[in-house]
């Protein structure tokens, strides 16, 4: 373990934790105003699971970083350019269908990655993934069923889901962009090469979209910049102003 590239490991942990943090915050925005009570609670449950995963990923990231910081420090005291989440998770909720389509794209990726990470050569990562695997298995079942239900639903719900698919699909490819750090972690058996997950992901997504009577765009263009920190969408800064304002306005405050 000693010769593992710590920079690559930190980068990986930030990517994992930032994905679940930003998506968890986004999903929590539905709390109290989802279309029906049952979905409201279900979305809040999902958001809480994601924030729980965030604590583990960013907690480990802070240890690897070795600057005496905590998961909270990383979540609330970094600025947009430090975040390493994929762009997909910071996109606006839109309507309920768009939120669930985004959730499905994330859950599908997570449900393929987590069981692999559960076999990581890094026992800490394996432990986090083991816990997350069960949560994600439920998330993906729920979001996939809802995508199918709305896609193969009424004319209006179908139209909205196709629009959500067309809007979000160009952000899916970023999950599978590999860099040198990913290659180092893959070689060390820490985490799989992101690109290696693509074919299983595509098969799964195609199957669900077929059941949902939705048409996947042919264009494989992928927006990128989030996971390598090159650039985020304008939405991330707005999320942070809301998510971080308390720690910014009252530094060190606890409750």
């Amino acid at each position: 373990m000693a010769d593992i590239d710590q920079t690559a490991l930190l980068q990986f942990l930030l990517r994992m934790g930032d994905n679940t943090l930003i998506l968890g915050h986004r999903v929590s925005e539905w709390c109290g105003k989802a279309p029906v009570l049952e979905e409201d609670i279900a979305l809040a449950n999902t958001a809480l699971d994601l924030i729980g995963q965030t604590q583990l990923w960013l907690g480990y990231a802070a240890e690897v970083q070795g600057e005496g910081k905590s998961a909270d420090d990383l979540a609330f005291l970094r600025d947009a350019w430090d975040f390493r989440n994929v762009l997909l998770v910071e996109l606006p909720n839109g309507d309920f269908g768009q939120t669930l389509m985004r959730q499905f794209f994330f859950d599908a990726w997570s449900s393929i990655l987590m069981p692999r990470l559960a076999n990581s050569a890094d026992p800490r990562i394996a432990e986090i993934a083991e816990k997350a695997t069960k949560e994600v298995a439920y998330h993906v079942e729920r979001s996939a069923d809802t995508v199918v239900g709305l896609g193969d639903g009424t004319e209006e719900s179908h139209t909205r889901m196709q629009a959500a698919l067309d809007y979000l699909y160009p952000y899916v490819g970023e999950f599978f962009l590999s860099d040198e750090g990913d290659a180092a972690l893959a070689a060390a058996g820490i985490a799989p090469d992101p690109a290696s997950l693509r074919s299983e992901y595509d098969t799964f997504v195609e199957r669900v979209m077929a059941r949902a009577t939705l048409t996947l765009p042919e264009d494989r263009f992928a927006h990128s910049g989030g996971r390598n920190g090159r650039m985020h969408t304008e939405h991330l800064g707005h999320i942070l102003t809301q998510m971080q304002w308390l720690q910014r306005a009252y530094p060190g405050n606890t409750w």
């Binding site: 009570l37 049952e38 979905e39 609670i41 279900a42 069923d145 239900g149």
Partner: peptide, 14 residues
């Protein structure tokens, strides 16, 4: 819930 399967999922969540 719209159907039995979703009713079980909603029951799990609620």
């Amino acid at each position: 819930a719209p159907d039995a399967e979703m009713a079980i999922k909603n029951a799990r969540d609620v």
